[in-house]
Design a protein around this nucleic acid. Structure first.
Lengths: 361, 361
DNA sequence: TTTCTAGATGTTAGCGCTAACATTTTGCTT
DNA sequence: AAGCAAAATGTTAGCGCTAACATCTAGAAA
């Protein structure tokens, strides 16, 4: 019998079920949404609502035969659980909020994607928010998200407004911070050290013995940390000729191209330009190509992120790799442990990084 | 008095309020979450819960003085509404589900971003799902999303499994389909004609009088529509030398480079290669650069999407532009009208497209 | 003054689900 | 056959909010 299969139950289309329900349970009031409820399913399966609920949430608590009847009744009625009600009753929304600086920047989405997939397996859904580059919007976004009562939160970065820190700490919701490292995380942090990246880049450039160092960098907290570490290290090594061009975030191809032009207009002729993202490096390369400047012959290029295209560029891009997928995986695993009340062995996790030397410098 | 400011109210930190509550309303049971509720706020503001609710949802229904008291009490208690409860009671979740083929593909995120911003202004939040390229995952994702009882749905594309179509239609939830066009939308459609793009590209290539046509295309529905329209039109125009390379979706730089190599290995020497995305064209360009093949001199290139970098590539990419932001805006506006029960004057909206001729062919 | 009305506020009863406890059934032992 | 623990199922009472209706208040009109 194919009735209302796959529907949330529009009024008038589940009439026989409705009749059945009237004889048991309380009757429908004007406030009901008209959708198929647990009550409807249990009427059909011949049991009580809680049994159906258990059949769905903890099948092991229900006899196999009952489980089958419930499954059948659900399929026949086209029941789709109402997680607003379920979340309210159980105080578990099965929702995890994830904040990224910019959607559509694939560098962040890889981490979130992995994170989301892990959590999906555990029965959670991701509520995505754009967050991090605009301090002003954070508070209102955070409140909007908190009103959904997420069971956990993923943040990109460790720098948050005082306001947000307080709200976050007060809630007691498990939190993972990512993409950076700190001794004093809000809760858990999975990331890598931008300080050490800056130093490593300085050492790398020093070893390369390049004439001049260019830095094409975004104006965000993490880039600034790297910039400071790199310039200070370079100075310590005796390399003083550093030309810095800052661009807005999120970084883009266009900004990379314009930034490279700016660098050249400031007299940058020979050396290596370190870019704060692979996208920026891609744009910079276009500018160099347009000017017929040899890469890496005259000017070398370095990116950050080792995005999927970096290895395939011409010349292949030297860049810094960190395992964004592993970061997402660890973030998910730690958060799940915290949610389940299990101990998190390592609340500060460094996933490290490596310089991937290719052909661009 | 600064009490629990900005917190959802951890037990023991809102003690005075808790006491106040006990004397009115019902007392806390073991099931309560411990968070500040409307009850707590109303106790402090000196009114009933419904008044606070109204102060928040329909401020115009409340006297200005009361409004102020409510506002103050909310700030003092750090109340954050519970939309699980609110949504359950009002049967409005204030959640809009948006499905995109791939997160992190900026071509889709621009539309969704604009869509989300419009809806945020109207008090909605976006629940994002990855959807569209993997038919098998659609049903379960859709069910997971439906269980949050979204007030509206945005879909990318018009091709959905029979299963999903049925589920979607049955719910009666307002739906916008985007990125394509059809006479028979599920509800509302805002997009452009891939058929006509294919034809326009064919005409363009014919006018260019190129020796040979290459097609580097993703294996998705929309790309296939364009491909069919283009090849059929080209044949009608008497151009039979068409070399087609299909790649997986989502398209990428790497696939573009590999696809170009494949095209060349199949004997493609001179002509124009139309790519089914700007990303693919970028990768193709890298391959041509690596082989020192002149662009557009020997081989010309054409993209699709006019992404932000297209105009800044070297050579600047000839591509097809459609207003992705406008698409998002229209989608949001139409959906809001439908949600509010207002008439949608144009349920099938064509945002058009144009070929942007630059330097790459 | 009374009467009426609109506006402001309050009361009641759920929304659909699940925690917590209560009861019944089952399968086993003695 | 009785007794008992474990498994299965059921009952009750909310979760925190808002729709719908009820009541109250202030100010205008008669």
């Amino acid at each position: 019998m194919e009735m209302g299969s796959g529907r949330l139950g529009l009024p008038g289309q589940v009439e026989t079920m409705r009749e059945a329900t009237k004889t048991r349970g309380k009757k429908r009031t004007s406030r009901a949404s008209g959708a198929v409820t647990l009550e409807d399913v249990s009427a059909r399966a011949g049991g009580s609502a809680i049994t159906v609920s258990r059949g769905l949430q903890r099948p092991e608590k229900v006899a196999p035969a009952t489980r089958e009847r419930v499954k059948k009744a659900i399929a026949e009625t086209g029941y789709v659980p109402n997680l607003l009600a379920g979340g309210l009753a159980s105080r578990r929304s099965r929702l995890i909020a994830a904040f990224v600086p910019s959607l559509g920047n694939s560098v962040y989405s890889e981490t979130v994607k992995e994170f989301g997939e892990r959590l999906k397996e555990a029965g959670y859904q991701i509520l995505l928010g754009e967050f991090g580059f605009d301090r002003d919007a954070e508070r209102s976004l955070l409140e909007a998200v908190m009103s959904r009562r997420p069971d956990g939160i993923l943040l990109t970065g460790i720098h948050h407004s005082v306001d947000c820190r307080r709200l976050l700490k007060a809630t007691g919701i498990p939190i993972v911070e990512t993409w950076d490292l700190t001794d004093r995380p809000l809760d858990i942090v999975v990331g890598f050290s931008h300080q050490r990246i800056g130093e490593a880049v300085a050492d790398f450039l020093y070893r390369k013995n390049c004439r001049q160092v260019g830095l094409l960098t975004g104006r965000d907290d993490r880039a600034k940390t790297r910039q400071a570490a790199m310039t200070s290290r370079l100075k310590k090594l005796g390399m003083e000729k550093i030309e810095v061009v800052e661009v807005d975030v999120p970084t883009s191809f266009r900004l990379g191209r314009e930034g490279m032009a700016e660098l050249i207009s400031r007299g940058f002729k020979e050396g290596i330009v370190a870019c704060s993202s692979d996208t920026l490096a891609q744009g910079a390369l276009a500018e160099l190509n347009a000017r017929s400047i040899q890469v890496p012959g005259t000017i070398g290029l370095m990116g950050l992120g080792d995005q999927d295209y970096a290895a395939h560029m011409h010349p292949a891009l030297t860049t810094i790799r960190f395992d964004r997928v592993a970061m997402g995986r660890h973030a998910a695993e730690s958060l799940l442990k915290r949610i389940d009340g299990l101990p998190v062995e390592n609340p500060v996790m460094d996933i490290g990084f490596e310089i991937v030397e290719r052909d661009s410098c």
